[in-house]
Simulated scan of single mutants.
Amino acid sequence: MTVASPPPESSAAADVVENALLGGKLRLLQPAQGYRAGMDAALLAAALPAGPKDRVLEAGCGAGAVLMQIAARCPDTRLTGVERDSTAAGLARRNAALNVMDDRVEIITGDVANGFATLDRPPFDWAVSNPPFFDDETTLRAPAPAKRGAWIADDGLEVWTDFLTRGVRDGGGIVVIHRADRLADLLALLGKRCGSFVIRPVQPFADQPAKRVLVRARKGGRAPLRLLPALILHDRSGAKHAPEAEAILRGEAGLAW
């Protein structure tokens, strides 16, 4: 199956707000209503150790928050985002142009469920994703229609992990952020083709359980799994974020592996 040319951008794309990211280094247009990227996108982008000239693929790029932050952090990378929602894909293209990154950021309107082969692209050096958190919407209060695509994986998490693992070359890397309670699922699904796992839990406070996990893997990797110390987002000092998290959000530091 060949990916069709992107459809015209919806008029709904005009109903947007502009946010500053990475301490004002980056401008991002996002929907005024519905899903808007935040901490998860910032952590995923900061967790990618892409090298010069690396090619990076994002599954489910939305309005491009992760891609734009990776592009700002790694100026010599080339990036491709896949997004099934034409309005979100249109916003991602606008964001690439707004930040003068459209010469190295490509947005494809396509569905992860159709498989990596439909992109007609060679495998990438890295693939990243913040997959929808839930496979079954009966397990939670139904999300607002505008947020449903970001919360519900209609075809299940396995479709996403299959896309990611087929989307990278042998020895290529994958970085995913997801709910901490789905860590076992992620390891089992990615483990079909990947190894050399590195896991970093993300805790709201030092005395609270992790709610997110960042998982890095290598296609064909055989190194032992490494479980790193948690990233703590907040402390009790009254500051909005703990120092390490604040430095990441401002673009002053990456996420240490």
Rank of each mutant, 00 (worst) to 15 (best):
K147I: 07
D155H: 11
A14E: 14
L67G: 04
K192F: 00
A32Q: 12
N99L: 12
V56W: 07
V213D: 07
C194G: 02
A46M: 02
L57W: 02
A223S: 11
A180N: 10
D40N: 02
T118P: 00
C74M: 09
V112C: 08
L214S: 02
A37M: 08
G171Q: 02
A142S: 13
K147P: 00
R104H: 03
P123H: 06
D185R: 13
G220N: 06
T138R: 15
K53V: 06
R121G: 01
K192D: 07
A180C: 11
G167E: 09
G62P: 06
L214D: 01
A242E: 10
V66E: 08
A142L: 13
D235I: 03
A146C: 03
A12R: 11
R78V: 12
M68A: 15
P201H: 07
L26S: 03
G238H: 04
A47Y: 10
A13R: 01
R212E: 10
D170L: 14
V3D: 05
A230V: 11
T80H: 05
L21S: 13
L231Y: 04
D120C: 12
P201I: 06
R236H: 15
E158F: 03
P229L: 00
P209T: 08
D120Y: 07
R179T: 04
G254H: 03
G156H: 01
P123D: 09
K192T: 11
A45F: 03
G195S: 06
I174K: 02
S11W: 12
P6G: 01
L186I: 11
A206S: 10
